[in-house]
Structure formats: structure tokens, C-alpha cells
């Protein structure tokens, strides 16, 4: 992937979604929750103010060792020492951005159809955005591309790509099932009162879809298990239809919550049942 490090959860700023809280506070929560690439997007802001925000966000993302991208403005990206720039289809061509940014910076571009995705790959984009998968307030009026476009990209495009547009923990599994392995969310994360926990949840869903293996402590011993739901984990041990009780990090998880509970690295799981006794 070269200059692009692998990432799975892309978070974009959206100050209109969190009145009363500062952008830095909200983005720091997202980083704490596992956001592994961050973009500053402000459509109507004087350049001087935008640069100020970009520098602050650069500072923050550097602390978390996470790449930082600026939307639309290569000059501000350069001035703020960002890692790259993100373009829309209506913005300058990739070649022009490349010329201004140099070979070492990241250039990403939004795509809404497979032809645009092919063109971006051909023109040397480092990654593409794929969406909006669902209707979104961030891009009002734009027709959702649905998961069928996600599936097309998954089949054909070889550069890194990230699904975006109206994605929340509730619909993320559909997008992942269509072949996405990276997600981007705006309002679901920055509009939440607890951005960190939304990020954690999305990261768990992505890890599960990728079939990553994580180490957990199960009944007192270290076990390498497939990331996924608690239901899947218990099934993998052939225990789903047995009368057992699951306790996760000291808290009992009722059976009807197994499906919605994600297996996370480092968690402590106890599975107990009844045995003969007096």
C-alpha cells in the first residue's frame, strides 16, 4: 500500500452534528475509539480559519499516529503538513493535485459509479471513497448508490477503497457483507454523544467481517478466536444449543444479546453450565 497505511475506520469532521462541543474534543474521542484515518471537511469557511483548524487537527492526529487528510484544498493540506488531500468529482483532476502535492502525499477521490472508480484507479488515486451507500444528510440530494455499487467495486477495484454515506453500526453489516472492508462514517460518529464507543463498535464489526482472529481469555485460558459475534463464537465451540451462561468481563450476557455482542481482543469470557453437585 506504500504511503497509505492499512486502515479500516475513516472519520470525517462534521461540526454541524455536534453543536456545543468542539471539533477537537469530538475527533479526539473518535481517535480514542479507534479511528485510523481522519479527514477535515469544511465546505464554507475562510481559508485562514480552515488552516487553523487543519493545524490543530494535524497536531491531534500526530499524537495518535493517524494519517490526516484535508478535503478539497491541496494548499491548506500542504501548509498544515497533512498526509494528503481528498477530492470530489467536481474538484481539480487527480493529476493536478498530484503535481501540487508531490508523489509522497495521499490523494483520495470520491466516486459514485464504477466508471469513476476505474478512472480514479487509472489516474493514480491512492484510495477512493465509494458512496453514498445510503442517503445521507452530509450530501443531501445525492442519489444513494446502494450496496450494489459496493459489490461492483469489491469485485473490480484493487486500490484501497472505503464505503461511505449514511453508514451506522445498525447498517454497517450490510455494507461489509457487500464486500467492504473499510468504512467511513460522519454523523453516526461525530453526532453521537459517545463517539468513541460508536467507533469501537464499527471497528469490531469490520474486524468480524474481515475474519480477523483475536486473543481472548476463555474459561481461564488464552484462546485465539475468530472476531465476530458472541453467538458465532459459542457456536464455534458447539455450545449454542446447550444450556450455558456467558459472562463477559464480569457481566452476564443474556442469550438474546449474544447476536449483538462483539468478540473483542483481550476480553475475558466465562462459559458455565450445570454439573452434578450436592
Amino acid at each position: 500500500m506504500g504511503k497509505m497505511r492499512e486502515f479500516s475506520l475513516y472519520v470525517i469532521t462534521g461540526e454541524q452534528y455536534h453543536p456545543g462541543r468542539s471539533m477537537l474534543e469530538v475527533m479526539e474521542a473518535a481517535l480514542a475509539g479507534g479511528a485510523d484515518i481522519v479527514q477535515l471537511r469544511e465546505k464554507n469557511m475562510p481559508a485562514s480559519e480552515l488552516l487553523e483548524k487543519a493545524r490543530a487537527l494535524r497536531e491531534l492526529t500526530r499524537r495518535y499516529n493517524v494519517p490526516f487528510i484535508v478535503n478539497d484544498h491541496p494548499d491548506i493540506a500542504l501548509a498544515a503538513e497533512a498526509d494528503g488531500v481528498h477530492l470530489g468529482q467536481e474538484d481539480m483532476p487527480i493529476a493536478e493535485a498530484r503535481e501540487r502535492m508531490g508523489a509522497d502525499r495521499i490523494i483520495g477521490i470520491s466516486t459514485h459509479a464504477i466508471e469513476e472508480a476505474r478512472a480514479a484507479e487509472r489516474d493514480g488515486a491512492d484510495y477512493i471513497g465509494v458512496g453514498p451507500v445510503f442517503p445521507t444528510g452530509t450530501k443531501p440530494g445525492r442519489q444513494a448508490v446502494t450496496t450494489s455499487y459496493v459489490r461492483q467495486v469489491a469485485d473490480e477495484i484493487r486500490i484501497p477503497w472505503v464505503a461511505i454515506g449514511g453508514i451506522t453500526p445498525d447498517n454497517a453489516d450490510q455494507v461489509l457483507a457487500a464486500g467492504a472492508s473499510r468504512l467511513c462514517a460522519v454523523s453516526a460518529i461525530v453526532g453521537s454523544s459517545d463517539p468513541a464507543s460508536v467507533c469501537r463498535r464499527l471497528k469490531e464489526q469490520i474486524a468480524a467481517a474481515r475474519g480477523e482472529r483475536v486473543t481472548i481469555k476463555l474459561n481461564g485460558r488464552e484462546e485465539l478466536v475468530r472476531a465476530g459475534t458472541l453467538e458465532e463464537l459459542i457456536q464455534s465451540y458447539g455450545l449454542a444449543d446447550k444450556r450455558i451462561v456467558a459472562e463477559l468481563d464480569g457481566v452476564i450476557v443474556q442469550r438474546n444479546r449474544w447476536e449483538s455482542t462483539q468478540v473483542r481482543a483481550g476480553m475475558t469470557l466465562e462459559l458455565v453450565h450445570f454439573v452434578g453437585g450436592g
Binding site: 476463555l218 474459561n219 481461564g220 484462546e223 465451540y237 458447539g238 455450545l239 446447550k242 444450556r243 450455558i244 451462561v245 466465562e270 462459559l271 458455565v272 453450565h273 450445570f274 454439573v275 452434578g276 453437585g277 450436592g278
Partner: peptide, 22 residues
């Protein structure tokens, strides 16, 4: 009466007592 114990992960056929009594 019976006791509560960890499930045996290596041998899931492990005869849980309740299977015979429900």
C-alpha cells in the same frame, strides 16, 4: 441440586447434568 462449573471446551459432549432432567 447441582453445581455451576466452566464448560469443558475440549470435550463439548461433556454430559451436562440438565440434559437428562429437563
Amino acid at each position: 441440586t447441582f453445581a455451576v462449573r466452566r464448560v469443558n471446551l475440549d470435550w463439548v459432549q461433556d454430559d451436562a447434568i440438565l440434559q437428562h432432567l429437563e
